[in-house]
Simulated assay, not measured.
Amino acid sequence: MKKVAAAASVSVGTVSNVLNAPEKVAPATVARVQAAIEQLGFVRNDAARQLKAGRSHCVGLVVLDIGNPFFSDIARAAEARAAEKGLVVLLGSTDDDAERERQYLETFDQQRVFGLLVSPASDDLGRLRALRERGVPVVLVDRDGRETPFSSVTVDDVAGGRLAVEHLLRSGRRRLVFLGGPLSLHQVAGRLAGARAAIGEFDGATLEVVPTPAPTVLAGRRAADALLAEGFRPDAIFCANDLLAIGVLQSLITQGVAVPADIALIGYDDIDFASSALVPLSSIRQPSARIGATAIDLLVGAAGGAPTENVCYQPTLVERASTIG
């Protein structure tokens, strides 16, 4: 910084302001300092800056599966909102593995991140509580935080499950399957609870639960293959997410089952692939972009001492050819 200051004929303090608060410096001076930075190849020592400031400008985002477009959309929206606030997002994907989550949390803590956005892989929030007690802001993403000390942003999965099954029942379907898993995931459990509540209010309707080891396309295809091999033919399938539904659709089409004439099919999340599937998928839409942006807003608020806030968005039904063709 001293060399930059000398080259630009300004003080070290002016160089610091150009780097950290350029609005305080005359535009001509900013341009002169930036030219000196470019000429000298200056790169700021961010580790030293973090030691002085206490925290970096980086936000740690830990999601369950970045391969799921729902979480990709959340990450993209979080990045955009973070940039507006002078922050950047560092991403970790746990694959629903509590040990990998622990490793990411430790790494981000060592990097002295501004704060953490976390979709927890388990019910054990002890490590997150410890980080919060040490002054690291934490916001839960896609998890209801009302029973915790954390701010959170989520979607009402019980309402979403109810929406999906009520739609199938209104279309005349009576033998329904809920397909998804692991059932230990809060999101899956909530959607199943909503499905069961809707079935319980309708005489003559049944709901068979088919767990899957993962919420993936491959798991959906294998589960549907197994159902058909056993000779079990429901007249509708509600999948816990769209990736599973796409796998189920692949299986049904391959084996000559007409969708929706023989079996209606609905997913959850309304990812981009849902509308472009061979048979466009009906789905329960989650506002992923709003979730990502809200998570950053809540984190900035928590860092500034704002009270805990729990935001819960309502899902909406998107009807397409897989249930109404």
Rank of each mutant, 00 (worst) to 15 (best):
L61H: 02
V62F: 03
V62R: 00
V62L: 06
V62N: 01
L64Y: 06
L64N: 02
D65A: 04
D65S: 06
D65P: 02
N68R: 07
F70L: 07
F70E: 06
D73T: 08
R76L: 12
A78F: 05
A78V: 08
E79L: 09
E79S: 13
A80D: 03
A80G: 04
R81C: 07
R81V: 01
E84P: 09
E84F: 02
E84R: 10
K85C: 01
K85G: 03
G86P: 04
G86V: 02
G86R: 06
L87V: 02
V88S: 14
V88F: 03
V89K: 08
V89G: 12
V89Y: 05
V89I: 10
V89E: 08
L91H: 03
G92M: 07
S93A: 07
T94R: 07
D96K: 11
D96G: 06
D96V: 03
D96E: 15
D97C: 11
D97M: 10
D97G: 08
A98P: 07
A98G: 05
E99K: 11
E99M: 11
E99T: 09
E99V: 11
E101F: 09
E101I: 06
R102S: 14
R102T: 08
Q103D: 02
Q103P: 01
Q103F: 03
Y104T: 06
L105F: 03
E106K: 09
E106Q: 10
T107C: 14
T107R: 14
F108P: 09
D109W: 08
Q110P: 14
Q111Y: 10
Q111A: 14
R112F: 06
R112K: 07
R112V: 00
F114A: 07
L116R: 01
L117N: 00
A121Q: 14
A121H: 15
S122C: 05
S122F: 11
S122V: 02
D123R: 13
D124P: 15
G126V: 15
G126T: 15
L128G: 06
R129H: 10
A130D: 07
L131Y: 11
L131Q: 09
R132T: 12
E133H: 15
E133F: 14
R134P: 13
R134V: 12
G135W: 05
V136R: 00
P137H: 10
V138G: 10
V138T: 03
V139P: 05
L140I: 00
L140P: 01
V141C: 12
V141H: 11
V141K: 09
D142L: 01
D142V: 00
R143Q: 08
R143G: 00
D144L: 12
D144Q: 13
D144T: 08
D144P: 13
G145A: 09
R146H: 12
E147N: 11
P149N: 14
P149W: 12
F150P: 00
S151V: 01
S151E: 08
S152K: 00
S152L: 00
V153T: 01
V153Y: 04
V153P: 01
T154L: 02
D156A: 14
D156M: 11
D157P: 04
D157T: 05
D157M: 06
D157Q: 14
V158R: 15
V158N: 15
A159D: 05
A159H: 10
